[in-house]
Design a protein around this nucleic acid. Structure first.
Lengths: 353, 353
DNA sequence: GGCAGAGAGGAAATGGTTTTCGCATGACGG
DNA sequence: CCGTCATGCGAAAACCATTTCCTCTCTGCC
């Protein structure tokens, strides 16, 4: 038991030498045969490939990268916990990288700077080709401290260093889409219920809501946005506040789907019909909220999966020596459901009579 | 522009030879100095370490693992999408492995067998030390096809092969905990509203609910479990069905938190007080549901993060040559909130008078 | 028949680290 | 003063795949 500690260790894996011996050629020839390089007789090539397959030969990535200098590996660091926002980003990135034969090292720093440094060191020792940094908020973050330069792309939460590459959702456009949609469906007294003012996402969306309304000659119902927390409880409370401040309010644009769902409940319980009397819009397109709400929620999809995918592609470009710079936004889209009273199959503009 | 394609490539990283040259010793000595091995004069050791630090030397993991045969790397494959259930497992695993200096390759097969094989091949080329397989359901799955044997641990969804190691949540115990809690708080007419009968999680929980009730001389309100979908909509509907089938029903045990939340809404809208008239229990302890429900939900926490952590530890043991076998359960716990009428700070048993 | 050229495949170096073995130096005892 | 031993460190092999020469053989042509 203690004598053979590696008893359970797998049998020695087959190397290129094993294949070479079995095929009666040299290791170099095997390499050429498998990678389709060099000048080989077709029959030799086929024979070697057949032997390799028979033996289940799989080239050792470590040996390979030792030679090529590339590992076809990237690190994906989430600075906060992996959560509802970083997960789609992560999946999009993983998807795009996987298609490019690149594997992803997952690192969750849980908001801990020490842990972050630890992961960075570990990733650099592994000679990753690049790094994607994401988080759960859209607020800018200080750039990663890297002892060795390596291509980095920031996704969701941009770097404060303008020299870095960052990809962020287009919250300005999101707010604008919502306001335009509400105005187009005849709403005029629009309230904005949202999260804490110290969250960039809340302030950006609020600002652009106000701006878009101003451009249409309108202004916010209640005069100013209602800041609170990102919860249903606040949504319920804020809806009542908004109703009280302006009993004629005919739309509520909420900073996220939870607030919107809370508002939906509060409105229903106050006897206001959604969408007939009050239209309701959320943000995030979080299906469990948007689909479960009564009525289902019109909301903004930030395109986070697409953002992750774009981050991966940008990173691969940077790895291939075409670095970008600055903050790029990724388009979002409005998902229309029942809470704004437009039949889900119909186009945004009112149907021809 | 086209002439220097690798212009953006990072400067050559410092190797052990660079350190050796700068410190005036051989590479072997540097290795010993850094890894605290071999016989070296303390001053030599310190000098080498100082130079290494000065030059920012980071050992090349590929070269290292080429020699040691270990990569300190494991693969984490999710057979379905990464989702609400596999994510905590993944985080727990990542946490435990990270503490053991092991990095995690993330692979999301999105339920695609082709993709799965592709990932397996890629991971084996990278000579991972082990593999964790997870999914979003607790139903057994066929074992991974591995051309080369490598330690594998199945988490959440067990392998159909009893030779494999699988870790699963203890749904039997979960159901039992709920029934005991409901009985202990004076409920007798307990209905069970749950997901589709072709989901193992639904049937196991239902079976053990029935069994636990039988052991206490009780039986299910309505006579049998109400199977439907895992949604709030079904929860609302099922609650009405259960009320209709047995107007004196005094508790509803739901197969997940969404159903429970739906039931909470339906009960409130039917004028039944929760928990005074009807107690309500969910399953999963999904915070956004359990905390947002009115009242907040008593529910079962499957301990998925702990399950992930345990899977990682089990895998590390297997890698170190102490393989396990069979299906192991991970304990769950009851989280008592307002929907069962026990003050949240109080212990399970009724407080002493 | 001899030579040039092309084609096929082998030998060896490369990459970075670890580890074993052995050499050299210095100290100490006989 | 010489032999022995311990100590400190270097040289080289090993890990595995790739790639660059380089050699050998065969064919074709003069």
């Amino acid at each position: 038991m203690t004598v053979t500690p590696r008893e359970g260790a797998r049998a020695r894996v087959v190397t290129i030498h094993d294949v070479a011996a079995r095929a009666g050629v040299s290791p170099g020839t095997v390499s050429k045969a498998i990678n389709g390089r060099g000048r080989l007789r077709p029959e030799t090539r086929e024979r070697v490939v057949a032997v390799a397959r028979e033996l289940g030969f799989q080239p050792n990535a470590a040996a390979r990268s030792l030679h090529s200098g590339r590992t076809y590996t990237v690190g994906l660091i989430t600075t906060d916990n992996i959560g509802r926002f970083s997960l789609p980003v992560l999946l999009g990135a993983e998807d795009a990288l996987g298609a490019g034969q690149i594997s992803v090292f997952l690192c969750d720093t849980r908001g801990d700077k020490i842990r972050e440094q630890h992961y960075v060191r570990s990733l650099l020792e592994r000679r990753i080709d690049g790094l994607i940094v994401t988080g759960r908020r859209t607020d800018p973050r200080p750039p990663l401290k890297l002892p060795t330069p390596v291509p980095v792309v920031y996704a969701l939460g941009p770097s404060t260093d303008p020299q870095d590459i960052s990809l962020v959702p287009d919250d300005a456009e999101g707010a604008r889409l919502v306001v335009e949609h509400l105005l187009a469906t005849g709403r005029r007294r629009i309230a904005h219920l949202t999260g804490p003012a110290h969250h960039l996402a809340a302030t950006v969306r609020a600002e652009h809501t106000v701006r878009a309304l101003a451009e249409a000659g309108a202004q916010l119902s209640g005069g100013r946005p209602h800041h609170g927390s990102w919860t249903e409880a606040w949504g319920r409370q804020a809806a009542l506040i908004a109703l009280h401040a302006d009993p004629a309010v005919d739309a509520m644009f909420c900073g996220n789907d939870q607030i919107a769902r809370g508002a939906a409940d509060a409105l229903r319980e106050s006897g206001r019909l959604v969408p007939q009397e009050v239209a309701l819009v959320g943000y995030d397109n979080w299906d469990v909220m948007a689909e479960a709400s009564r009525p289902t929620l019109t909301t903004v999809d930030m395109g986070l999966t697409e953002l992750g995918r774009a981050a991966a592609l940008t990173l691969m470009e940077a790895i291939d020596g075409e670095p970008s710079q600055g903050v790029r936004t990724v388009p979002c889209r409005l998902v229309v459901r029942d809470s704004t009273g437009v039949p889900s199959a119909a186009p945004l503009r009112s149907p021809a009579p």
